[in-house]
Design a protein around this nucleic acid. Structure first.
Ligand SMILES: Nc1ccn([C@H]2C[C@H](O)[C@@H](COP(=O)(O)OP(=O)(O)OP(=O)(O)O)O2)c(=O)n1
Ligand SMILES: [Mg+2]
Ligand SMILES: [Mg+2]
Length: 569
DNA sequence: ATCCTCCCCTAC
DNA sequence: TAAGGTAGGGGAGGAT
């Protein structure tokens, strides 16, 4: 197979020391033609070699000036870099940093100018850590903060040592499986099996269908006098699997790619019997089987899911492939009892869905419906853990917990002002309203797409640069394909994820706990051509100066879209 | 003030 | 083995 390489190339480094050596060697290879440029900042005459191996980059206002520092460093055997570059610069010299810069450079060595001056004065290289712009405690705390708060818990739960050991124990066959480096058609194959990719593209499809229905009056529904009906299929993927297997009635059932004990595969969906054991959508199969050993795991049936939602497209805001929001002005349920009439309609809709799909849908799970009177909402909300509010995920939940806010009731005790101060104007307002059962967001029945993006962060293991180039080409084709359907580009972004050291993802072939780097470029003319998108992305990738072996994901995003039919201004 | 850019976060 | 994608809201902080 073209582009394939020997298995040896995949063996992860045995220890960190070896990794560093390996990294240096590869960097040297990768940047061979840039070597000439490296020597540019080196002085023609040397007074000493105090700064041998040191390359500084100066930023912001500093005293002595950057020019002076450059002279000092170069005279004493070091280098000065005009531009910051992660792999060339060893130390950043600064006296102040914006928080954005600090974040960007949180793993770099950032020193005060005095480090240079004092080293020259003493005639030897002083420990940079004594001149660290941020004292050690702040620095490590900040590092810990970013590492911790940036990734969901499971990514941090395992130690590098443990994972390295597991990696070493893995049968060799597992290391030679197709990845981004070897698989001919990796992106297409991957997308064919990725549930999250399906979920996303189906949502886009449904949104288009809903927009075409042109229920223009929906936009005019008074948000304070309306009924919103929320319909969602019950354990959708699982229902589809179970409907033709009556023998599984009453059994805990879930959907996943892998059925193996200890698997790191995701449980996409599970039925209510399984949830009684504490199983949740998105959980790892290994964990699910521990909690429920007799769980029946069935494969995905993407074609079936698609057939179901395509045939029975929702009438209003498509939330996802199994879910919709329907908005009605109150008078739609008059005359008579609003609750009663809304209930009757809900019943009808659910019956129709069941007849058409043989799966159940509900407003009260599972397989139920409920008309929530504004009056009964408050006691429920007061007891509700904040995590259950829409818009409160892993991160906001943690920040709320830090403020000792656990429930809707706790939230309701905090003044609007305070919430906005802690969490921002908009987020604060949202929390304030939701805690009171108020949600006046109009349904989004139609909207112009603002971006088109593609991203793969699974199975990404490169050995050679040309493999990356090919991979970016595949992604660019995908972006172009989708773009042709819609608008044009003004701008593109490549973003990357890169781990700090050895491979230690909890998920087999996963991306692990990575840095996410991003770089954008504004095109002079909008495009929808794969060639242009590829060339630009490839150039941006080069600018990031990554070691290809470190890359754990690549994505391309197209922004500033404009319609191609209309005036292409 | 209001934009823009570079992120982070959330949902399915 | 395993398939950790994606659009859009929003915040921080600099540019205009
Ligand atoms: N982490 C997740 C969450 C959901 N899904 C998929 C499988 C689900 O069946 C479908 C719909 O998501 P829901 O949140 O509606 O979950 P279910 O329909 O499975 O269960 P519920 O009865 O709670 O709606 O999306 C997934 O693949 N991974
Ligand atoms: Mg559902
Ligand atoms: Mg749903």
């Amino acid at each position: 197979m073209p582009g394939s390489v020997g298995r040896e190339s995949y063996l992860p480094p045995r220890d960190f020391g070896e990794y560093v050596v390996c990294k240096r060697r590869k960097l040297a290879e990768q940047q061979q033609d840039e070597l000439a440029a490296l020597t540019k900042g080196v002085a023609t005459q040397c007074l000493s070699s105090i700064f041998r191996g040191v390359a500084i980059y100066a930023t912001g206002y500093i005293e002595p000036s950057a020019v002076k520092l450059r002279e000092l460093v170069c005279l004493h055997g070091g280098r000065y870099e005009q531009y910051y570059n992660r792999s060339r610069v060893t130390h950043i010299v600064a006296t102040t940093l914006t928080s954005a810069k600090f974040r960007q450079w949180r793993h770099a060595k950032i020193v005060r100018p005095a480090w240079i001056v004092d080293s020259v004065r003493k005639g030897r290289l002083l420990a940079w850590s004594h001149y660290c712009l941020y004292n050690a405690r702040e620095y490590t705390d900040e590092r810990a903060f970013w590492q911790k708060s940036r990734s969901p818990p499971q990514e941090r739960a395992r130690t590098i040592a443990k994972d390295a050991a597991e990696e070493a124990c893995r049968p060799t066959s597992m290391r030679s499986l197709p990845t981004s480096a070897t698989d001919e058609n990796f992106v297409a194959n991957y997308y064919a099996s990725s549930r999250l990719h399906h979920l996303s593209s189906w949502k886009a499809e449904l949104r288009d269908i809903c927009a075409k229905l042109e229920l223009s009056h929906a936009a005019n529904v008074d948000t304070r006098r309306r009924v919103v009906m929320h319909i969602d299929m019950d354990c959708f993927f699982t229902s589809v699997a179970v409907r033709d297997r009556p023998e599984l009635a009453g059994c805990p059932v879930g959907i996943s790619h892998s059925t193996v004990t200890g698997s790191s595969s995701d449980l996409a969906s599970c039925n209510y019997e399984a949830r009684a054991y504490g199983l949740k959508n998105g959980m790892r199969v290994g964990e699910a089987l521990k909690k429920c050993p007799h769980l029946v795991l069935l494969p995905y049936e993407f074609a079936q899911y698609k057939a179901i939602f395509a045939e029975y497209a929702a009438q209003i805001q498509a939330v996802s492939c199994d879910e919709a929001l329907l908005g009605f002005p109150l008078d739609r349920f008059l005359p008579g009892d609003i609750a009663e009439n809304a209930q009757r309609m809900a019943r009808e809709i659910r019956d129709k869905i069941h007849a058409a799909t043989r799966c159940t849908a509900s407003q009260a799970k599972p397989n139920g419906q409920h008309f929530l009177n504004p009056a009964e909402a408050q006691p429920v909300l007061d007891r509700l853990p904040v995590k259950r509010l829409p818009g409160v995920g892993w991160s906001l939940d943690k920040r709320l917990k830090d403020k000792h806010i656990e429930t809707g009731g706790d939230l309701r005790k905090i003044a609007l002002n305070t919430l906005q101060c802690w969490f921002g104007t908009s987020t604060g307002q949202m929390l304030y309203s939701f805690a009171r059962g108020i949600d006046e967001r109009p349904l989004q029945t139609t909207s112009n797409r603002q971006s088109i993006s593609t991203n793969v962060s699974w199975g990404v293991r490169f050995v050679h640069t040309h493999q990356v180039e090919k991979f970016i080409g595949e992604l660019a084709e995908e972006v172009a394909r989708r773009t042709v359907k819609e608008g044009v580009v003004g701008r593109m972004i490549v973003y990357k994820r890169k781990p700090d050291a050895v491979d230690h993802a909890y998920k087999v072939f996963g991306h692990g706990d990575c840095d996410i780097l991003q770089q954008g470029h504004m095109l002079s003319t909008a495009t929808q051509e794969a060639g242009v998108i590829k060339e630009t992305s490839w150039r941006l990738f080069g600018q990031m100066n990554l070691l290809v072996a470190d890359v754990r994901g690549i994505g391309i995003q197209l922004l500033k879209l404009a319609s191609i039919n209309k005036d292409s201004g």
